[in-house]
Simulated assay, not measured.
Amino acid sequence: MEFRTLRAFVEVVRQGGFSPAAKVVFATQSTVSKAVRQLEQEIGLPLLDRLGHRVAPTAAGEIVYRRAVRLLAERDDLGAELAELRGLRRGTLRLGLPPIGSSVLFAPLVAAYRQRHPEIEIRLVEHGSERLEELLEAGEIDFAGLLTPIAPAFAQQPVRSEPVMALLAPDHPLAGRPAVRLGDLRDTPFILFESGFALNRIILDACRRDGFEPTVVARSSQIDFIAGLAGAGLGVAFLPRMIAMQRTEVPIGLVLLDAPGTDWTMAMAWRRDAWLPPAGAAWLALLRETWKDDAA
C-alpha cells in the first residue's frame, strides 16, 4: 500500500469523482482509476459505489478514507520534522482563512508576521469552515480560522466573538427594531452563504430550536452581494456585527439578532497531535501575543 495510492483514493472521495481528483493530484483520470482499483485489490473489498458520474465511499471505503487521511498527515509531519532537523529553516506557513472576517481579523496579523519573518513563505487558502476543517485534519494546512464549537481533535486560540445582526431592507417592518428574534423572521425568506459556511449551521440550528425551517431564497459566497440582496428586499441575511457595520454601499437595515447560541465566535485551530514547524510556532506566538488568551 503506497502513499501515492492512498492520496489518489482520498481525493476521489473528497472531490466526489475521478476526473476532479485527477486534477488535484496532477495525474490522468485513468491513473487515478488504476490506483483505486489497486487499493481495492490489496484490501479485498470494494471501496467506492459508482453513482453515475459521482462516487461515494462504501462502508469499507469510509474506514480506509479516515485512516488514509491520518496516514497522509503523519507523512507530511514526518517530512517537516526531518527537514527541520536537517536545518531547512526557511519554512512555509500554510494558513486556511474563512471569507467572513479575515480582512478585519487576520490581514493585519499576516502583514505583521511577514514583517517579522520575511524569509517564511505564507501560503493562504480561503474556504468555509467545513472545508477548512477537512484540510486541517488532512494536514494540508497548519492552521485554520474556524467558528466554534471546534472538534476535540484540534487545539484552538480564541480570536473574537461577535453577536450576529440581521440585514433587512430599510422599509422592512422589522428594520426599525433594536433587536429581532428568529421567530419574528419565519415568514421572511433567508439569504444564506454557500454550503460549507459554519454561519449557515449556526443560523439554521437556531431556527430548528425555534421550531421552524426557513425558506432559503438565495445563496452566495460573496458578502457584498448577500448584503445587496438583503438591502434590495429579497429577504434577510445574517452577518457578524463587525462585518455588518461595514456594509455602507447600499441602504440597509441592521438589527441585532436576539437568539441564544448564535454568537459568531472565531478561533484559530491546529491539530493537537501535529508537530508545529518553526514557521507555525512563530505564528502561534504572534496569535497569543495579539489576543493574550492561552490556547485551549
Rank of each mutant, 00 (worst) to 15 (best):
R4I: 11
T5L: 10
V10I: 04
E11S: 11
V13M: 05
Q15H: 07
G16V: 01
G16I: 02
G16R: 09
G16M: 08
P20T: 00
K23H: 14
K23E: 14
Q29H: 10
T31S: 15
V32M: 05
A35I: 05
V36N: 00
E40T: 07
Q41P: 04
L45F: 14
L45Q: 14
L47S: 08
D49R: 15
T58V: 10
A60Q: 12
V64E: 00
R66Y: 05
R75P: 05
L82Q: 08
R90M: 04
P99M: 03
I100K: 05
L105Q: 08
F106P: 04
F106R: 10
A107E: 14
L109W: 05
R114V: 02
R114N: 06
R116A: 09
R116C: 02
P118E: 02
E121Q: 12
I122A: 06
R123P: 01
L124K: 14
V125E: 09
E126K: 10
G128Q: 04
E130S: 11
R131I: 09
E134G: 11
E137G: 10
E137N: 08
G139N: 08
I141P: 03
A151G: 01
A151H: 12
A153E: 12
A155Y: 07
L167M: 08
P170W: 00
D171I: 00
A175G: 00
R181F: 03
R186F: 03
R186L: 07
I191P: 00
F193E: 09
A198P: 06
N200Y: 04
D205V: 13
R209K: 11
R209S: 06
D210F: 06
G211D: 08
V216K: 10
S221V: 06
D224P: 06
I226W: 07
I226P: 02
A232L: 02
L234G: 05
F238R: 01
M242D: 12
P251E: 01
L257E: 05
L257R: 03
L257N: 02
P260D: 05
W264I: 06
M266H: 15
A269H: 07
A269T: 05
A269S: 11
A269F: 06
A274V: 03
L276D: 08
A281N: 12
L287K: 09
